[in-house]
Design a protein around this nucleic acid. Structure first.
Lengths: 373, 373
DNA sequence: CTGTTAGCGCCTTCAT
DNA sequence: ATGAAGGCGCTAACAG
C-alpha cells in the first residue's frame, strides 16, 4: 500500500502542472453572480431566466444571458435553490433489499415516474439491516427530501411518524407499518393467493405447502400466510374439494426448517397425495429449489411441484409457475401518491392493491409429472 | 379515478383538523436559530456543537444545547451546510443497468464503503438509455456531488471530461471510456477469460463458442472478446491442443443470431467435437439458456455445455460453471479511489483489475455428459 | 469559552 | 423591463 502510494507520487509534478493549466479559470463552478457579470446585468434577471419567466425579458437580454451561460458552462446549484425555495425536488426511496428482483422492478417504475414529475429519487438501500434503515431515514430527513417512499424493513411506526409529522409525506410499498396510517401500494395478496391456489387445485394437487419467511414483522408475508389458510379453509367449507394445506416458516439465514419440508413431501407422497410447494416470494422459491435440486438431483421438478409469488428471471428457465406482481405499476403509483401529497393534497390515506398475474408454466401443469416415485 | 378522488375528498375536513392540531408548532423543521433561542445562546455555539468541537464548550452550555436539540427534534440541514462548506458529502453513482445482478452487487460494496467514509451515495439508474445517462450526469453536477462513480453506458468522453474539469473526480467501474483517463476498477477480464478457457480445455472441450453482446461501445465486452480470441490463438500456437473458437454477437434486443448458435452447435457435434458455449456475462447466459431450453427441452444441459462470466443466483440452480466477479470489492475500491481524490490526492490515474474466481459446476465437469446425441 | 458578522448561491419582494 | 436588497440555514473568521 505504501509502495503503491509512493509510486503514484512520482507523477505528482507532471499531473499537477497539467491540472493547473486546464483548470486555471475553471476550478470553481460558475455562480449566478458570474453569469450576471458576464452578461452585464443583475442576478435577478438571470434568476428569472432560469425559472422560465419568459416574456418578462427583452430579447436582447435573454440572448446575452444565454451566451453567458453557455460560455461559463453554468448550472444552477440545486442546493442553493432548495435552500431558498424550501423545495429541492428530492424524494427518498428507501428499499429493504436490492438483492430482491422485486425491489429493482419497483424501482424502475419509481424512477420513471419521478422523472416524469421532475423529482430526483434518492435511493437508499437498507440491505436488510434495521439499523441502516433507521440511519437512512434520518439522513433523508437531513437532506430535506420532499417525500419518502418506503419499502419497510423493521422501522417502527414511531420513526416514520416523526417524519410524517415534520410534513414529509410517506408512501409505503409492499408492506404496511403497524400503527401508521399512510398511503400504501402493493400487490393484492389475498386475491393473488386465492388465484394461485385455485390453479393448483384445478391441476389436481390436493396437498399444499406454503413456505414463507418469518412473517410476524412483515405485513405482506402475514397477509399472504393468512390468505393461504383462509383460502384452504374456504375450499374445505364449500366442499369443493378436500385439499389440505400447511404453512412452513423458513428462515433464509439458518435454513432450519428445510428438513421439515422434506418430511412433509415424503409423508404426502406416501399417502399418494399430489403435493405442491407454494413459495411466498422469490428468495424463498430459490432457496427451496436449490434444496430440492441438491436432494433429488437435476430433475427434482419431476418429483415436486413448485410455484411462487414473484416472477423472477430464472422462473422461465426452471419452468416454474408464478404470480407476477405488477411491480412497475406499483412504483409508478407510489410516486403518484407521493406527488399528490407533496403538492399539498389533503385526502384520506389510500391503500392501492394491484392485481397479480398468474403465469402458468410446466411445474404445475402436467398432472402425470408429479405423482410419487 | 374521478370517483376515487371524490370519495377521498369526503375526508378532507376531518383530516385537515387533525393535521392542524398535530402540526401546530411542528410544521416547519426547527433551524439552528430556533435551537439557539431555545438554548439561550448564539448560533455559533450550536454550530460548534454540531461539528463536534467538543471541549470548547462549557459542560452546562452543552447540556442546554442537547436539551434544546432533543426538544425541538432538530436536524441540521445538509443543504445549507453544503452550501456554506462547499462540500455536501454527496457522491453520484451512475449505473447502466440495475437489472443486471452485477450492478446490484457492486452497489452493495459502494454503499458500504460510502457509509464508512461518511458519504451519501446518490444512485442514478440509466436503465440502458443513453439519454437518461447524460441527463443524470448533468443532474448530478447540478446537485454538486463531490465525486462520481460511473458504470458507463454510452457517455462520450466529452461529457465526463466536463465534469472532471469542473473538479469533480470520476471513477469508472467495469467499463472504461475512450479518450478519458481516470481511475477505473473492474475485473481482470483477460485473466478471467484465460482461466475459463483453460478450464474448458482441461475438461476436454475442443470447440468453444464465445457469445457476447455487441461490443464496439463497451470496453469490457471488447476486452473479453479480444482475450477470448487471443487465448484460443495462443493455445494453437503453443500446440497445446487443437481447440478452435469463434465469437458470436448476440443482441439481446432482437436475438438475431440465436439461430447461428444452433447451427454452430449442430455442425460441431456432427464432427464429433465437444462444444462449449461461453457467455460473456449473465444476461447473455440467461438468454442462451432460455433458448437452448426451448429448443432441446428441460434437459438441454445434457446436449450443450454452457458457462459464463458473472455468477448469477440461478447459476447454482442450473449447475452452470461461472467466473464470479469480485463485485463487492470492486465497489469498495471505487469508493476508495474516489475518496482519495475528493480528499485532494493528486496522483496518476490508476487502473485496478481484480481477479475473478472460477466456480466449477456440473455444466462443464462431466465429460460423459456432453457428447453428441 | 462565547457571540457577532459576513457571506455560500439563489430567489423574492419591492422599487425604479 | 430591470435591478437592489434581504434572507433561506449554516459555517467561519474575528473579536470579546
Amino acid at each position: 500500500m505504501d509502495k503503491a502510494r509512493l509510486g503514484a507520487l512520482c507523477f505528482y509534478r507532471v499531473l499537477n502542472e497539467n491540472m493547473a493549466r486546464d483548470n486555471f479559470a475553471n476550478d470553481r463552478r460558475a455562480t449566478i453572480t458570474d453569469v450576471a457579470r458576464e452578461a452585464g446585468t443583475g442576478k435577478t434577471s438571470i434568476s428569472r431566466y432560469l425559472n422560465g419567466e419568459t416574456g418578462v425579458l427583452s430579447t436582447q437580454l435573454r440572448e446575452r444571458i444565454e451566451e453567458a451561460i453557455a460560455k461559463l458552462d453554468y448550472r444552477p446549484n440545486q442546493m442553493a435553490r432548495g435552500l431558498k425555495r424550501g423545495r429541492n425536488r428530492l424524494v427518498g426511496m428507501l428499499v429493504a433489499d436490492l438483492t430482491n428482483p422485486y425491489t429493482v422492478e419497483v424501482l424502475q417504475g419509481v424512477e420513471a415516474a419521478c422523472h416524469a414529475y421532475g423529482y430526483m429519487p434518492l435511493i437508499c438501500h437498507a440491505a436488510n439491516e434495521v439499523d441502516l434503515e433507521r440511519r437512512y431515514l434520518q439522513l433523508l430527513s437531513t437532506y430535506r427530501v420532499e417525500g419518502v417512499i418506503v419499502n419497510a424493513l423493521g422501522v417502527k411506526e414511531e420513526t416514520l411518524e416523526t417524519l410524517a409529522r415534520g410534513g414529509v409525506p410517506v408512501v409505503l410499498v409492499d408492506r404496511s407499518v403497524e400503527g401508521l396510517v399512510t398511503d400504501m401500494v402493493g400487490l393484492d395478496n389475498a386475491e393473488a393467493i386465492r388465484m394461485a391456489i385455485h390453479h393448483l387445485v384445478s391441476q389436481g394437487f390436493d396437498e399444499l405447502l406454503f413456505v414463507v419467511q418469518p412473517y410476524a414483522q412483515v405485513s405482506s408475508r402475514r397477509v399472504r400466510e393468512a390468505a393461504f389458510r383462509d383460502t384452504i379453509g374456504a375450499l374445505g367449507i364449500s366442499g369443493v374439494s378436500d385439499v389440505s394445506g400447511a404453512t412452513i416458516v423458513l428462515d433464509l439465514d439458518n435454513d432450519e426448517n428445510l428438513a421439515e419440508i422434506d418430511a412433509r413431501i415424503d409423508a404426502a407422497q406416501r399417502r399418494s397425495r399430489r403435493i405442491a410447494l407454494f413459495a411466498a416470494n422469490a428468495p424463498v422459491a430459490l432457496r427451496v429449489a436449490l434444496h430440492l435440486k441438491e436432494l433429488h438431483g437435476a430433475d427434482w421438478q419431476r418429483r415436486v411441484a413448485l410455484m411462487s409469488i414473484d416472477d423472477s428471471e430464472w422462473a422461465e428457465l426452471a419452468g416454474m409457475t408464478t404470480v407476477r406482481q405488477p411491480t412497475y405499476t406499483i412504483g409508478e403509483r407510489a410516486v403518484e401518491f407521493l406527488h399528490e401529497r407533496i403538492e399539498g393534497a389533503v385526502v384520506a390515506p389510500r391503500e392501492c392493491l394491484l392485481p397479480g398475474e398468474l403465469i402458468v408454466r410446466t411445474s404445475t401443469s402436467a398432472p402425470t409429472n408429479n405423482g410419487n416415485t
